[in-house]
Design a protein around this nucleic acid. Structure first.
Lengths: 190, 190
DNA sequence: TTGACAATGGCACTCAGTGCCATATAATTC
DNA sequence: GAATTATATGGCACTGAGTGCCATTGTCAA
């Protein structure tokens, strides 16, 4: 399915995304209207909404694109696989994928600058955590286990991205191990 | 500050809240407009926005009312206090407080029924997690530790509320212990 | 080339959210 | 108790988000 239409759609989607990020960084998130973005991308306002459900969706869609991969990774681990191993694989894989998207850093920068943008991203993160919870529950875990592991998984992802964003490059596999180690150590005492 | 004005404000706030919950449960969340709520509370649309920043705020304000208590509990623990103890106290205290609010169950019911309402609540939960993270960081922890503990804390709260909502009453102290135990067990292997 | 199908643009509409100002009600002062 | 000052409210008007509808344009297949 790489027809001319599909490629044009990808082009338009990218144009919208680029125009939006540019404007967010220059004018600010709240000050940029959908109309501005559409104009910047050379497209009508109406068309914008055919690609993105909302202005916030511009920030969240990148996250959600990999929700499926996260879910599959969790469900793909063999039945007897210990929970930490599942978390390890899921976090490593998704972090690596997400870090590879060029727009990720710019989006994190925008979220860092503007509270409304940060709120939009946090909202998506919470949504993603729900999906992860359901995936863990699908592995035959109790609701409590699934909920806690989902929390741990997303917290790890968040911590890793924070480090990755702050320090430039990060060895993601190593960061996951350190995070799990920290968690064990902190929870172990008391 | 329990003047006549203050008591009237409380009255109006409650009237709006009650009207909103009633309408959400009867008409549905998306189908209920701010104008409906204002009319139901016997107040103008403009006045609604003087009490609540948005329709979503009706669902989130209950959560955020206790953000301060959560933060203080975390910061109040003595310096050498182990992290699990901090988490234990924070979760226990806030869970008990939040469970005592009459509207909590109805709001959870609404969030259960309507995706948009659930999204609004999740958004607030994520916001709360940020505050908790900052509180842990304020205890002199590393960013990684703070991020992970905040994730664990909110996951525990979520799990406990889920149980509390499903099963009617729950021994919150016991639930916290079980949650922490589950977490140690699950993370210990592998 | 023609006909089916998808993408786009433009229009109009509802609703959220906000600034502004006039009015009414409470608190304060004399 | 009357006058004055704050504060809460209501109404109005405005911008912007998001959506349904339809005419138009461009793409694909026969």
């Amino acid at each position: 399915m790489s027809s001319l239409q599909a490629r044009k759609q990808e082009l338009v989607r990218d144009a919208i995304w680029d125009a939006a990020i540019e404007l967010f960084l220059v004018k600010g998130f709240d000050e940029t209207t959908v109309e501005d973005i559409a104009a910047g991308a050379g497209v009508s306002r109406r068309t914008f909404f055919r690609y993105f459900a909302s202005k916030n969706d511009l920030l969240g869609q990148g996250i959600m694109e990999y929700a499926g991969a996260l879910r599959e990774t969790i469900l793909a681990c063999p039945a007897g696989c210990p929970a930490t191993q599942v978390v390890r694989e899921a976090v490593s894989r998704v972090a690596a994928q997400y870090a590879a998207i060029p727009r990720t850093k710019q989006i994190m920068r925008i979220a860092e600058l503007y509270p409304a943008a940060r709120a939009a991203q946090l909202s998506r993160t919470a949504e993603l955590q729900e999906l992860v919870r359901e995936a863990f529950a699908g592995r035959g875990m109790s609701g409590v286990e699934a909920g806690l592991l989902a929390g741990v998984t997303l917290a790890l992802l968040s911590v890793i991205f924070r480090a990755w964003f702050a320090a430039g490059a990060t060895d993601i596999g190593r960061a996951v191990e350190e995070g799990l180690g920290t968690l064990r150590r902190v929870l172990g005492a008391g």
